[in-house]
Design a protein around this nucleic acid. Sequence first.
DNA 1: TATGAATGAGTTTTCATTCAT
DNA 2: AATGAATGAAAACTCATTCAT
Lengths: 231, 231, 231, 231
Amino acid sequence: MKKGSKAAEPDTNGIPSDTPRGDARRKYDPEQTKRNILDVATQEFSAMGLTGARVDAIAERTNTTKRMLYYYFGSKEGLYQAVLEKVYGDIRALEQDLHVSELDPVEGMRALVEFTFDYHDRQRDFVRLVTIENIHGAKYVEQVKTFKGRNVTVIHTIEDLLARGIAAGQFRSDIDPIDLHLLISSLCFHRVGNRHTFGTAFGRDPSHPRLRARHRAMIVDAVLRFVRKDG
Amino acid sequence: MKKGSKAAEPDTNGIPSDTPRGDARRKYDPEQTKRNILDVATQEFSAMGLTGARVDAIAERTNTTKRMLYYYFGSKEGLYQAVLEKVYGDIRALEQDLHVSELDPVEGMRALVEFTFDYHDRQRDFVRLVTIENIHGAKYVEQVKTFKGRNVTVIHTIEDLLARGIAAGQFRSDIDPIDLHLLISSLCFHRVGNRHTFGTAFGRDPSHPRLRARHRAMIVDAVLRFVRKDG
Amino acid sequence: MKKGSKAAEPDTNGIPSDTPRGDARRKYDPEQTKRNILDVATQEFSAMGLTGARVDAIAERTNTTKRMLYYYFGSKEGLYQAVLEKVYGDIRALEQDLHVSELDPVEGMRALVEFTFDYHDRQRDFVRLVTIENIHGAKYVEQVKTFKGRNVTVIHTIEDLLARGIAAGQFRSDIDPIDLHLLISSLCFHRVGNRHTFGTAFGRDPSHPRLRARHRAMIVDAVLRFVRKDG
Amino acid sequence: MKKGSKAAEPDTNGIPSDTPRGDARRKYDPEQTKRNILDVATQEFSAMGLTGARVDAIAERTNTTKRMLYYYFGSKEGLYQAVLEKVYGDIRALEQDLHVSELDPVEGMRALVEFTFDYHDRQRDFVRLVTIENIHGAKYVEQVKTFKGRNVTVIHTIEDLLARGIAAGQFRSDIDPIDLHLLISSLCFHRVGNRHTFGTAFGRDPSHPRLRARHRAMIVDAVLRFVRKDG
DNA sequence: TATGAATGAGTTTTCATTCAT
DNA sequence: AATGAATGAAAACTCATTCAT
């Protein structure tokens, strides 16, 4: 009944392929199976929450069966945790590309805010999973190794920007970097995480391109006004 | 097993009620029964989410039985919706007490932000329920009648403040009131809704009194800097 | 919430009515209440079956409350039985009007068949309740006093017709009256009782006027051909 | 509590099956599991009706658990529908064995009526299920694919008989085949479906062998008299 | 490595009936 | 005579997980 994987892989008629090992087309590819499960699970958990997601629903959208899900991830919770791990890993990869230390403090701050904005705006799954984690008291994310490291990195970036801005007489000197991070996160996160109630309340979809652009500018503006040295 | 009766009967502070004694304990009191169920359900849904909450668990902490829950609210979803309705109604009631129109624009804005901050800081159940609603795409809150009205009220308040501030030469004239509301909400909501992941990431509990006070000042500061006219 | 009875009875403003006793407009009229419950119950049981009918649904469509239903009829089964009793009583009343003994045997037979046809065609509730009773092994109808008597009457009518028809050389002499009754009933009952599956199977609704007329003629024809003496 | 295994394994009459021994008892046999559930459900639904039947009661008499019932049939209604489908399929299969087109029209008609009589007389479950379906307005049978096809077949058989009988000068030419089918069905169905009320009313059990034989002859006689050309 | 069948414990919901006023 | 609130027992259905192949 479920032979999706076969259908996806055209019959090779016994002819040996020229890619010797690690061939993506070989019949049993544990890595690909795992990745497939993880991808589907990410969607399902982020759409339905940990309790709301159904193991059957995940398995059904997979190229494999429910049994494999347990084979690789042990339990529903194990799978959920693997999803969290993957999602946090993805961010790290992206953040490497931001080289704010090479920019002027104001421009660097703008770049950081814009990056944060864009990331949240695009990675709705990430935003939802964070939300879901908070409903569960963050008890699963605590076990994710990459989690703490990722946040330390951001704080270092902010500390560097603040220090250079203060030195250049551009920024106020009384700002706590973690507080500033919280402020930036709040502005970028809320409009994505709560866009449904926002949309219902005001008849405006915050993800509409025009609104998105305006919010982006507003948030950059608000942050710069906040850090900028008076007079 | 059933010690919810205390919670169900609000402390009267020794003030004698005008209803004859023992009246509050009469067996047939539909309003009290409903309120009791609603109170317990609010805690359970906000703690566990819609799918995570258990009807049995709610009933157990109630003065009555599971059957009455269905008698009055029809279904688990019906009860959840009644909880949303109640919670949104509660805010509205409180907001009436804020008379910002009588204050100087800057002071009024400060008062509004402080109220918003305090409300979110104290009403964690509300924050969690909004979060939960967003996981469900706001489909239940859409059916809550009091929902849209409540939000219009806030926008009117902000419009009034902005208009008066612009007239007095204190505020910028290019700010959209709904955008500003979003900005304020973001700052007040995020630190409560995502306090668990924040705490895990930075080892700081945003609900600690010292941090709370600092955040409150920071947010007021950020909003005022944002709305203030330059120069 | 349910003041249908009030609405139905215009306020008399304290003016004494000229009907002294048994006034249908007095506030508490047990007979009317019982009749009302019975009427609603007849519809509900015939529409849903004994197990399918819901006491709540019956009560809701009544001018009174569920409690009264138990007050007067004791239980769901008691009410069902009362419905059976009423329905069988109704037939008896109608059958009195048939005076086939005054007619020529052939015409009398025709009249009997037409009466039977028309009765089943119009009294769908009756047909359905008989059907329902058979699903329950006729165990409730057994306790209905009017039941057996009614059937004896029909058999007597048929016996009379057959005897006179045989004497007149019009009818065959080898027909058992109960068998003939069964034959007539079959033809009149089936097209009503099973009209839904029939309609679905052949895209024809047997209750359509044109089809009704044709069936009526066909059934009379079939019965007369069956009883008529050959050549 | 579970002695359904006998009923579930049809008597093989000592004929060795071509599958190795003990094979029928292997633990994983989805087809047998489904058949077993379906068989038990047929009895339960026909005995108790759709609403009267209990999923637990069905499961208990099964070789498996309630869970499997949902695994294979989705819901109580789904199971009921599967039962309808099976039961209608069974008739079709049997009807194929009747080769009335090879018989003289009168003999063919007699064979058809006798087959119809015998089928209804023996397959009480079928009769009851049709009755039950009509209580539900035939809404479940409408979704059964095999339903309409089955009925078309019978009509074709009747059309063929009528045409040949007319050509041979044996039958009247003014008979509608669907009407005739209704007439035959009425006579064969009613005495089975309503045998309980009939028995109660007249103290005669229509399923008694002697009565059965007489009814059979009577019905054949009535139908032949109806179709036969006069004079 | 992979799979479809199977399951026990739990979860929501329904129902006829009775209680207190 | 009449009523709305209340209820226990049972019913349908769901879920994460494991077994046999």
